[in-house]
Design a protein around this nucleic acid. Structure first.
Length: 477
RNA sequence: UCCUUCUUAGCUCAGCUGGUUAGAGCACAUGACUGUUAAUCAUGGGGUCCCUGGUUCGAGCCCAGGAGAGGGAGCCA
């Protein structure tokens, strides 16, 4: 007999037919009712056992966390909480679970506690919903780009370029760290290392992505990225997943159009394909909100927030306009910002981004044309000599979710800028070759996948939307 | 890295001005009940009060140092 997944079973018309289900026990009530879950859906199926005819040792083995196999008959439920249920004919304990030691209990647990038992937290309603959603969001991203004819490029995880300037890097070596080979002048001799040079874990696949875009026109990468920054926040990880599309013959407007279309597409996909999980997380968030004081509460539910995001255009504003808005705001005049906005050219702080997104526009905002001094070397310079064709997408509650730009395709301008910013051109000879041989206008962006999952799940800590978070001083599991 | 808060039972937390044997709810165990929905009722077991040192007749509580966690900032995706 073939096992039926609970998701299918719950949609099946009950006709007293025999079924086989397997899963993990969530609760066992009244010595009769098992709530069984197999991860295919957030809902449990109710198994009804006859405690008079079931052996004592089987009943004792039906504890929270145990895995069981049940052969039984599917009937319309006689109780109120569910439409169908399985009347057990035979229950087999596949793997028992000592209820006294199993850390998950049939009660609410804090997210902090669940982080400490990361190996078991998949088995909770909340994390079940989060990771089914994460799965479908990843799939939706591939689907989106595939439908648009993009080529998925696997950029390397180990790189030798340390000139990307995106952050601190993790070194990759197989030297004996207690005794690495040295050169005559006492420096570590990387010529003797595995790759014959110093290597690192990638901080971005963008530069390699640009190489591929100069052949396929439209490409994207979707892979793990590593930053050795000592960042301890709810929005940063040392290992995270990033989506980086790169498009030849695109300018900044095309770039923004694509980013906005992609965000709306994947959110819509999740709403359509994970309705039950989003509904669960939406209610979860509403209950969390009730705990907060009235003035800090979010007026919109998670579902409303997601729909709002799909139905409204992202607000597009230049950095210069944003500075004007912030400078003229009552918030600034009443000195409510920690960092007051006076002059053009300063980098925006989180408080300013939050003000623009959450107070002023009340929707996702795309900021463009930042001062060149606060942005990376590869961004295309505007004719004003002061700004570059950069764009950041800011989301409510999360801040920067996408960072992108039109790239500088003019070799002379790029080389000059690299010199100004002390980027070693000789290390990036291969990157500059794209500007020597058939250069063209092009653009791209990076999307932090976990930040997207944060937004769609309504979770607030990034450690809760990746299965095994890596953060400073923390690499368990 | 900086600022800030926290650490007491398996979990969530209370513990008064430093004073006898450190408590509650849930969980767990045992029993009762048997169409329950985080079942209910009764009974019971369960503690390195984060660690180290200090002050004191006496420290869960005060002081110093350390560790871990949460929140905020910076950096960014």
């Amino acid at each position: 007999m073939k096992r039926v997944r609970i998701k299918e079973l719950l949609k099946t018309n009950p006709e007293n037919q025999e079924v086989l289900v397997k899963g993990w026990v969530r609760t066992f009530r009244n010595n009769q009712f098992i709530a069984l879950n197999d991860g295919s859906t957030n809902s449990n199926v109710q198994i009804v056992v006859d405690f008079n005819s079931t052996p004592e040792e089987i009943l004792k083995g039906i504890t929270t966390g145990a895995s069981i196999s049940v052969k039984g008959k599917l009937i319309a439920s006689q109780g109120k909480g569910q439409t169908v249920e399985v009347v057990a004919i035979e229950v087999e304990i596949l793997g028992d679970s000592d209820a006294e030691k199993f850390p998950l209990q049939p009660k609410k647990h804090s997210l902090e506690f669940l982080r400490e038992i990361g190996h078991l937290r998949f088995r909770t309603n909340t994390f079940g919903a989060i990771f089914r959603l994460r799965n479908n969001l990843a799939f939706a991203i591939h689907k989106f780009f595939n439908e648009k004819g993009f080529v998925y490029i696997h950029t390397p995880i180990i790189t030798s370029s340390d000139a990307e300037g995106a952050g601190e890097m993790f070194h990759v070596t197989n030297f004996d760290l207690a005794n690495p080979p040295k050169t005559d002048n006492g420096e570590i001799d990387y010529k003797q290392d595995f790759f014959g040079k110093a290597t690192n874990l990638t901080v971005s696949g963008q530069l390699e992505g640009e190489l591929a875009a100069m052949a396929f026109s439209d490409i994207y990468t979707f892979g793990p990225t590593f930053r050795a920054e000592n960042s301890n926040t709810t929005r940063h990880l040392a290992e995270f997943w990033m989506i980086e599309p790169e498009m030849a013959f695109f300018d900044l407007n095309d770039n923004m159009d694509l980013a906005e279309e992609m965000m709306k597409y994947v959110i819509k996909y999740a709403l359509e394909n994970n309705a039950e999980d989003i509904e669960f997380l939406s209610q979860r968030l509403s209950e969390e909100e009730k705990q907060k004081p009235q003035n800090e509460r979010n007026e919109m539910t998670l579902i409303e927030k997601l729909k709002f995001c799909i139905d409204n255009n992202f607000e597009r504003v230049t950095y210069t306009q944003a500075i004007e808005i912030l400078r003229e705001s009552n918030h600034n005049k009443k000195k409510k910002f920690t960092y007051l906005i006076n002059d053009w050219g300063v980098d925006l702080q989180s408080e300013h981004e939050r003000y623009l997104v959450e107070k002023h526009f009340k929707k996702p905002v795309i900021l463009t044309d930042y001062p060149k001094n606060i942005k990376a070397f590869y961004m295309r310079q505007n004719d004003d000599g002061k700004t570059v064709r950069a764009m950041d997408i800011l989301f409510p509650g999360i801040g920067e979710i996408v960072g992108g730009s039109q790239r500088e395709e003019r070799l002379d301008k790029l080389e000059t800028r690299m010199k100004e910013m002390n980027i070693p051109a000789e290390d990036l000879w291969w990157y500059l070759d794209t500007r020597r041989f058939g250069t063209c206008p092009h653009a791209g962006f990076g999307l932090g996948f976990e930040r997207l999952v944060l937004f769609v799940t309504g979770m607030t800590n990034i450690r809760d939307v990746i299965a095994f978070p890596r953060t400073p001083k923390s690499c368990e599991f």
